[in-house]
């Protein structure tokens, strides 16, 4: 295993709160690493509403979710944060020297005196259809993403969903699968029109089966799927052979391992004080939608304020022997140098 990464601050979550925290920490010369389960920055802004306009960011009368994230990325560029995308914060332990060791789900270790939880409502994870016992097949016969196409060669493949992932994999896997069945709750699709047309051609040619249906039950043993019971809207049920099931219903948010971090969660939120935004564990801070305090509002703008105060408190933990010099970006040549503007 590689050496643990040592830094000043590890931020869990690269949404707007986590990104702006990099800026506030950077002004105080504190280096940050960010961990996010998604493969790009922005959190809910880019995952849920990249194209939707936001009207309550001070100074920006209208900005889309994606634009806001792009601008934050530009703003924090001078501080060169390190991103660990596609990884989930999995474990947190206190070291004898008082620092924290954060472990990701891929086994990466990061050591820092300060951890900032900016995890929003939690991690984006694939939606799991409400089918009894589906967990037993996950990883063996039920997959929420296709990693190796070859593993579906010669299989009876069942795909559920109506978006681009469902249609793309229907088109890609149909030629190599023994059989391919696509099911969706309606005979209409949000996927690209040309993909839908191609799928309909395959259905007409007898190479893909399409049903307006949902999966009611999975059958098999030892994690190996053999068949699935489908049901139409008329409640009529029937069974088909299925060795692999690929549900594509997008992502949902689950709190995830943070719940086990021992940071005094209350109704899935971290209580913090409003002077430092520190949790009940010294050195673990929280900002943004994941925290609670009297009067808390879940607004992006609130997270910016929270980040600024957090950074001041984090400085005293990271640099206990240094005096914090409070400066303004408008007048401080020192800060302007850090920002690369003077």
């Amino acid at each position: 295993m590689s050496e643990p990464i040592q830094t000043d601050v590890v931020i869990i979550g690269a949404g707007p709160a986590g990104l702006f925290a990099v800026f506030e920490l950077g002004l105080l010369d504190l280096k940050a690493h960010l961990i996010d389960i998604l493969d790009r920055p922005g959190g809910q802004c880019t995952e849920l509403y990249p194209e939707k306009p936001i009207y309550d960011i001070p100074g920006l009368p209208v900005v889309t979710g994606q634009e806001l994230v792009d601008r934050l990325m530009e703003q924090i560029k001078p501080f060169a944060p390190t991103f660990h995308f596609g990884e989930q914060a999995a474990g947190l332990t206190k070291l004898p020297d008082g620092r924290w060791k954060l472990t990701t789900d891929s086994g990466k270790e990061l050591i820092a005196p300060v951890i900032v939880v900016a995890a929003g409502a939690g991690s984006f994870v694939p939606k799991r259809p409400p089918i009894p016992g589906i967990e037993a097949y996950e990883g063996t016969s039920v997959h929420y993403a296709v990693r190796k196409m070859d593993s579906f060669a010669g299989k009876n493949v069942l795909i559920a969903g109506g978006g681009d992932s469902a249609l793309d994999w229907t088109l890609n896997l149909a030629p190599i699968a023994k059989s391919l069945t696509l099911i969706h709750h309606r005979d209409g699709f949000r996927a690209q029109a040309h993909s839908v047309n191609q799928m309909r051609e395959l259905v007409a040619a007898g190479k893909v089966n399409f049903h307006v249906a949902s999966v009611k039950a999975l059958h098999g043993q030892n994690g190996q799927l053999a068949a699935a019971t489908l049901a139409g809207h008329d409640k009529k049920e029937w069974q088909i052979d299925a060795d692999a099931f690929l549900p594509f219903f997008g992502l949902t948010i689950k709190l995830g391992p943070i719940a086990e971090f021992g940071i005094g969660l209350h109704e899935n939120l971290i209580p913090v004080d409003t002077a430092k935004f520190e949790s009940e564990q010294p050195g673990i801070f929280g900002i943004g939608d994941i925290i609670t305090y009297p009067g808390k509002l879940k607004l992006i703008l609130s997270s910016f304020h929270e980040a600024a105060l957090m950074a001041q408190a984090a400085f005293h933990i990271c640099r206990p022997n240094e005096k914090l010099r409070f400066q303004y970006t408008t007048s401080s040549s020192n800060l302007q140098k850090k920002l690369g503007v003077s």
Partner: peptide, 9 residues
Amino acid sequence: LDMALAVEP
């Protein structure tokens, strides 16, 4: 609704 689970008419 295409991305929702357990969708009914």
